[in-house]
Amino acid sequence: MNAFSRGSAPLRKAAWIDYGRFLLLVGVAVWLLALGTRGLGYPWQWYRVPPFLFSADNGIWTAGPLLRGLAVTLQISLLSLVGSLLFGLTAALLRLSSSFSARALARGYLELIRNTPLLIQIFFVYFVLSPVLDIGAFASATLALSLFEGAYAAEILRAGIVSLHRGQWEAAHSLGLGTFDTYRHVILPQAVRRVLPPLAGQAISLVKDSALVSTIAIYDLTMQGQKIVAETFLAFEIWFTVAAIYLVMTFGLSFLVRGLEKRMNGAPLRGAGGFG
């Protein structure tokens, strides 16, 4: 936009050429897609999709299986997000602690989780841990996702914490603040703000990874999609719809985080720790 409102004539011209290129790119993509679908010879039946989303009976709207699946996905994602932040924060603080056993514990957790597939972890929690802990499929899924994403969140948070200027610790300590107060009031607010973008990326990964819980018979968005496809053979329409719903969710999350970043920008990142 700025390129149009401001700048000299040659700059404006360059901007127009740039936008022209973009339109050309979109045009080619649409043309390729149209070509592909025609060549496929697939009988598109989009009109059969809406009932799976919602149905309206005498003015009463009821959610279809896809929207019910979405609700489950949202629930699991939200709970796991809280869980992963808890695990992540704990592991990050343990890794930074001066105690050897605390560091070893955190290290063991991180290596174990990050070096095995999420799918296996979900199976492990569901088939091995859940009978011991006496928890159901939903809780198992939430626990597995929390543990998995928590390991990544831990490294992100740790990076944010160690990136702060040493002077912040020293100032807090010289005022007599203990470790807890220093973390809570001085270190974490700054560290979290710095790593908000990668943390948001992790949250988006979590939403997408939650599709794997369909393997332990949880009727999330993916599982509902699978079931409908098995019954109706509307493979393309349903999977496109499911993908679009995931896209809306993750885009929504990105917007949310961007808003949060702006709101937190009362004091910008620069100048942290004395020298600009």
Binding site: A171, G176, D181, A267, A272, G274
Partner: peptide, 25 residues
Amino acid sequence: MVFQSFNLFPHMTVRENIDLAQVRV
């Protein structure tokens, strides 16, 4: 203690910087 590089807490206002330890400590 007063440091060469000030070490104020950048995410807090001047007032909050000075209040913090009074309230917490």
